[in-house]
């Protein structure tokens, strides 16, 4: 039996809304340590990795490791029926072919349950090696979303260049060229405006903006996002989900032929 009760139920809605356009169907893996998902987009250019630790749930029970294949579009439709402040409980029998979502209003005066059919999804699991990144930039998630959106109106690729002076996002296209530089400001009076750059050595990488834009759908999940880069390696775009875990995206670079 798998049963997990999440008091901040809208977190699940935000997670699914963040990934459903990148990945259509995926396996959610449940074990005693938590609730995870790893999936690549169809072109195998980007990967999403969700990890919600069991201790972040009000109640978490997983008698036997299980993998639940779901259509993320259908899951999003079900989660749309949850109230923003509802408590969400997921339940699935060990050898069942459905998963039930129960939504309870805070005053417990409204309880609903939705049953979703599970799917058989054969997804390959990738090993993500620990990487010694040359640069890790942490900036407000809304700032990152705005940079991706603004540059998308200029071109379809972005060069992200991290130096000790700051991190520069450059794009060019038929319209023209754009450079957005964000400088470190760990002294910003408001924590949510702080930008920090952990630089071991300067690094510059080129990426397709449409994926970076898609990752920014995770903005509601966290105040900040971290971009970790190393030469000729995929970038890791990391949203920390407070007290629960993380939603991470990886994107392969575009490299001179």
């Amino acid at each position: 039996m798998f049963e997990a009760r999440l008091v901040q139920g809208n977190l699940l809605k935000k997670v699914v809304d963040a990934v459903k356009d990148l990945v259509t169907d995926a396996n959610f893996d449940c074990s005693s340590s938590g609730f995870t998902l790893q999936a690549m987009d169809n072109s195998h250019v980007s990967l999403v990795s969700l990890s919600l630790r069991s201790d972040g749930f009000e109640h978490f029970r997983c008698d036997r490791n299980m993998s639940m294949g779901m259509s993320l579009g259908n899951l999003a439709k079900i989660l749309k029926c949850a109230g923003n402040d509802d408590i969400v409980t997921m339940k699935a029998a060990d050898d069942g072919d459905t998963v039930t979502f129960m939504f309870e209003s805070p005053k417990e005066d409204r309880v609903s349950d939705f049953e979703l059919k599970l799917m058989d999804i054969d997804s390959e699991h990738l090993g993500i090696p620990d990487t010694d990144y040359a640069a890790t930039v942490t900036l407000p998630a809304a700032e990152y979303q705005r940079i991706c959106r603004d540059l998308s109106s200029i071109g379809d690729t972005v060069v992200i260049s991290a130096t000790k002076d700051g991190v520069k996002f450059s794009s060019s296209g038929d319209v023209g060229t754009a450079n957005i530089t964000v400088r470190q400001n760990t002294t910003a009076d408001k924590k949510e405006e702080q930008v920090s750059i952990d630089l071991k050595e300067p690094v510059a990488l080129t990426f397709a903006l449409r994926y970076l834009n898609s990752f920014a759908k995770a903005t509601p999940l966290a105040s900040h996002v971290s971009l970790s880069m190393a030469r000729d390696l995929p970038v890791m775009v990391d949203y920390q989900i407070s007290d629960m875990g993380h939603l991470r995206f990886y994107l392969a670079p575009k490299i001179e032929d």
Partner: peptide
């Protein structure tokens, strides 16, 4: 032009 790489050039299937 820069060629879009594939994640499987970097991460192995486990």
């Amino acid at each position: 032009a820069d060629k879009q790489r594939n994640l499987k050039d970097y991460f192995n299937t486990v």
